[in-house]
Design a binder for these strands. Sequence first.
RNA 1: GCUCCGGUGGUGUAGCCCGGUCAAGCAUAGGGGCCUCUCGAGCCCCAGACCCGGGUUCAAAUCCCGGCCGGAGCACCA
Length: 511
Amino acid sequence: MPPEALKEIATPPKRERKPQGRVWPPLEGAEEGNVVTRVAPEPNGYPTLGHAKGLLVPFIYARIYKGKFLLRFEDTNPRVERLEFYDAIRGEFSRLLEAAERELGLSPGKWDEEIIESYHIPKMYELAERLIKQGDAYVCTCPAEKVRQWRREGRECEHRDQPVEVNLELWERMLEGDFKEGEAHLRLKTDMRHPNITMRDPGIFRIVEAPHPIHGDRFRVYPVYDFSVSVMDSLTGVTHAFRSKEFEPHVEVQRTIIRKLGLREYHMVQFGRITVEGIPLSKRYIRPLVESGILEGWDDPRIPTLRGLFRRGILPEAIVRFFHELGPSKVDATVNMDMLAAINRKLLDPKVPRYMFVPDPVRAVIEGIDTPVEARVQIHPDSKEYRTIVVEEPIVYISKSDVEGLKAGDEFRLRGLATVRVRSVNPDEVSLILSQEQKIKGVKIIQWAPLKGGVPARVFIPLSPYSYEMLGGYGEPALAEMREGDMAQMLRMGFVRLDKRKPLTFILSHR
RNA sequence: GCUCCGGUGGUGUAGCCCGGUCAAGCAUAGGGGCCUCUCGAGCCCCAGACCCGGGUUCAAAUCCCGGCCGGAGCACCA
């Protein structure tokens, strides 16, 4: 019997491991090559982690099935939309998609086409007219309050049965500007007693008297969400329209619109929203914090806007990996930053240089060391490259937290410089003496900075949207050569991104 | 209240549609060990879950019924 066979008998049970890596569930009705998906953000703010899911889920499916992916701006509520947000969305989405191509091999890492919904408003007017002529839509001039109440009660108002000619004329007048905002809207005629209240003659066009960021005052009648998505998705060839699940009750409305217009149908897929443990994701909560100055801005590293995350040093690649692993689940997920951090760390760890930074510095005088002396520190544990630090005087900074608990006789090593023994500890100065035996193994190794040449720096530690900690101290001279945006690991502290050079300020990404 | 959707280890997910191969996979967090002139990293190991109750079946995480719990929506916003 060959030894391998024996071994098999001896240790049989080990089951084959299933293939690693996340495999996404198949998309209903999808076939390779015929899938078209889209992301449809409203340019009304800076995109957040929540938007990243809305971007990545349809993108990933589009690429899995070698289909098309569209970016469509849903800019049909001019009151809240601003030009700067179109660009912010383009910019942040691009970084994510490029990262998706690099990380997951989903190519091409960009959208295939950009559509701005507001340019299609004239087409939507035509369709509205068609609905009116078919008797499927009517102009209602009831006040909002009454409509709300009657919808709830399932009552039909007097406008519902107006003749087509009257509706046509009222519609014309809406377009012409005979009505003010709120005075008239076009409603789809469905069923005022439908169990799903959103289905009770939903409004499909309304008047908005606010300048549009692109078109100014060209339009005053705008389609309502349910109408514009349905029409746009159908007209642009979308096969699978993704939405976070709060839109679920609208599926029926949208399907009805499509059918009444005789347009092409498509799949509607819902996915769950994500919440970051304790951190507000929605603009509603973030905005007041920004406006009150509690946050530095929409790119504050304490909030999960994409720009905030990037500024904090979370790589777009990490965000992409994160959502790829989360999958398209319909369950609302509460995630903690630990997961994102863990992914980011794995990306950063192999390629980011190491530096020494001493927060809360305390002077340490070393007896018995000949200065000047050159310390050699490894730039990265896996590399053979070293950096030298010139120590001109026998005095270095070490961190207060390392000093605490030290007592005479304790031994530790100043990384790359010397192994030392404690002679005495005073509140603002530690007295050290060079150890006889310069051992490295078995002793605690700590970071330090030279008294002369040490670079003042600080590290911003995000704690919550409302709080942070700022650690000041000295770092090794090489910190002065870093460029804004560079990533590094501060030894025994964590990964940081250089936020700005004057004063030298790092942001702690995570440990 | 009404409509819809979900409930798999501490957390997030895979599996469920097409019952068996699930003594349930992966990740993260937790515990232990090893390695390392940093570490909360890496490597190895350990522990940890199918909401409850019925039913169908030789067989149920998977199908059916009931319950419980959770989420979303109920705007002339998206």
